[in-house]
Structures are given as C-alpha cells and as structure tokens.
Amino acid sequence: MKCQQCDNPAVFHITELESGAVREVHLCEDHARVYLNQSENGSGQGPQEDAEEQLEKSGLKGPLGVSQTAAELAILDQKACDMCGITFFDFRNQGRLGCPHDYVQFEKELEPLIGNIHGATLHTGRRPTRTKADTLSAEVAKTLLPEGTEELAGIIGLRRGMKEAILREDYEKAKENRDLIRDIEERWFILPSKD
C-alpha cells in the first residue's frame, strides 16, 4: 500500500475515531510523523506542545500575535535591548534572543511565552556554586559574587558603546568604557589573558 501523501510505502496505518466515525489513514514514516505531530498539537495541550510551535502560536514568532493590535505590536517590536541592541521584532523573527540581558529587558513580554512553553516561570534547579558561601573556602567567600550575572551583561553594552565611540573618534568616552569593563572583569576574575 502506498502512502496517501507520496509514493513511498505506507508503514503507518492509523485509525482515527472522530465523533463515532472511523477514518483510516495510511502513511509513510515521514508523513506519519508530520501527521501525528499535527493531531497532537491540535488538542492544544499548553506546556505539552512542541516548543518551537509555541513560539509561533504565541504570536511572538512570525506574523501578528492574536492578542495584540497592530499598533501595540509595532511599539513592542521597536523595543530594543540596551546591551546587545536586538529588537523585539528581531527576536520574534528569529526565535533566538541576543544576549543574557534580554531576559531582564523583555521580562514582561517573555513571561507569558516562557510560562506557555514550560508550564512554569521559576527556576528550581541547580544554581552556580561560586555564589554559595558554604561551598567555598573562607578566603574565597570574602569575594563572594552576586548570584545573578546581570552585572556581567553590562560589559556587552559597554563594549558596543566603546566601538561606537571609536567610530566617532570620541576616545575619551572609549577609554571611560574600557576602564568600566576592566573594573567588572576584575570583580568577576575574568580579566583576559595577555597575548
């Protein structure tokens, strides 16, 4: 028997029960996968759905979202990250964020999306151990780092500002940013090696 969608042999024979009626579907492996994914997502199971499709469905990826008006979305789309400069429009199109600071900058917008994908909005798993005093020696504990790494994301913005300053030959500003970057790097023990 051939697949109903192409010329490959049908290896999946699915019987659908729809309000009492019986329907048979015969598909090859490839089309069966597509078919099964479709019928699964059709049932609208919130967190159970495929994450990529969630992005699309929630209106945050691809065309207009259902819940927003065109005007609202246009304003939201222009919102840009202070650090990496990605706009919300870029994120909606690519489905990828630009830098760690986006989770802070777009927190309000991302919250419903993340809630839909995961069925939760709070991390309960592991946390970086370098921020936990009890796991470190007394000497290291004195230099305990904050748990979140938001301060480090600041470097992304400072670096971008430094490049722009150099372009407009504002070397004063470039130097200022470089020093600020160095301060943060020192605090976090990530000074680049000399080469």
């Binding site: 995961h118 798993g125 592991r126 946390r127 979140g148 790494t149 994301a153």
Partner: peptide, 20 residues
C-alpha cells in the same frame, strides 16, 4: 561565569532551553 538569573536560571539563546 555562566549567564544566570535568580528567577530564570541558566540563560539560553532560545527560551525553550532556559532554566536548567
């Protein structure tokens, strides 16, 4: 220094991987 947020956990390029 891994990108980490107290609420969102380990931060990833795609929100489908965020948290753990």
């Amino acid at each position: 220094p891994y990108a980490f947020h107290p609420r969102w956990g380990y931060l990833t390029a795609c929100p489908t991987n965020v948290g753990t």
